[in-house]
Write a protein that binds this DNA or RNA. Structure first.
Lengths: 137, 137
DNA sequence: ACTATATACTACCTCGTTGTATTATTTACT
DNA sequence: AGTAAATAATACAACGAGGTAGTATATAGT
């Protein structure tokens, strides 16, 4: 029912950047706009570039820019890359052995809910975000 | 998208106990059946009795039994008492200032999903659980 | 009163997540 | 070549959730 801070930040950053996807964003700029700590953001940006969402350009006049277009990136992909979407899809009661053939008491109830959750995150693109509503802090 | 371990355990325990709600359950018995660590379960049971779901009976021949009937306890109440349902209902992007009048880019998307989640947990009773599907471990 | 068996309470330990500090590397410009 | 401005990488600190140990307290049966 809640994402990790890392997912929060990743989404914040990429949603923010997708306002003008061709622009080169510096860490300094993102830190200022999004109020994520400098060091933490930089580390996260490295992860995001390793995951292939953005390219990092080192050196003077460097920064970060998109590789894929925001219309090619699903919210699911972002969350999956930073915290693992499968973690969120386990048994709600924490039973290792829970499955459709051996369901726990809440299995079908939870399955329906999480199917909807997954569907939305799988089908929503970064570019579907409403850019009139970019909060900063 | 996931509950805390404490919520998992609380649900496990109460769902298990609601199989025969008038029975007196000892910690030892619950530990054995549900594979939750002895000390942790005991501490959690104290919390659950303070929250008014169960009564604890100390001393020899003591144990735990329901106060309210399982048809009076909503899943929402259990989760809310052990981890605070409000924590799960915050802004998905972690913006403090996010609200309907000042929404973040994902506000309405997330609002719809979490409304469904809340609805199900608010409307589902402990006694609605399928007791043919009580997994133990 | 004593004992066995149960819960209550307090303090501590462990570990993953979050956040910070420091140093190294890369690149454009002059 | 030298400098300034940017990212990369690594190590470590702080915190909270989860889990454990040990002691105190309560109660039924004898």
């Amino acid at each position: 029912m809640k994402l990790s801070k890392t997912s929060e930040y990743a989404l914040r950053i990429l949603i923010y950047m997708s306002q003008s996807p061709d622009q080169l964003y510096t860490a300094k700029q993102l830190v200022k706009e999004l109020k994520v700590s400098d060091k933490y953001l930089r580390r996260l940006m490295t992860d995001l570039s390793k995951s292939g969402f953005i390219r990092s350009i080192q050196g003077r006049d460097g920064g970060y820019t998109f590789i894929k277009g925001p219309d090619e990136i699903m919210l699911y992909d972002i969350i999956d890359s930073v915290e693992g979407m499968d973690k969120l899809n386990g048994c709600l009661l924490g039973f290792e052995s829970c499955s459709s053939s051996n369901p726990c008491a809440m299995h079908y109830l939870w399955m329906n809910l999480r199917t909807d959750l997954n569907k939305v995150f799988r089908e929503t693109k970064l570019s579907d975000m409403d850019f009139n509503k970019i909060l900063r802090y």
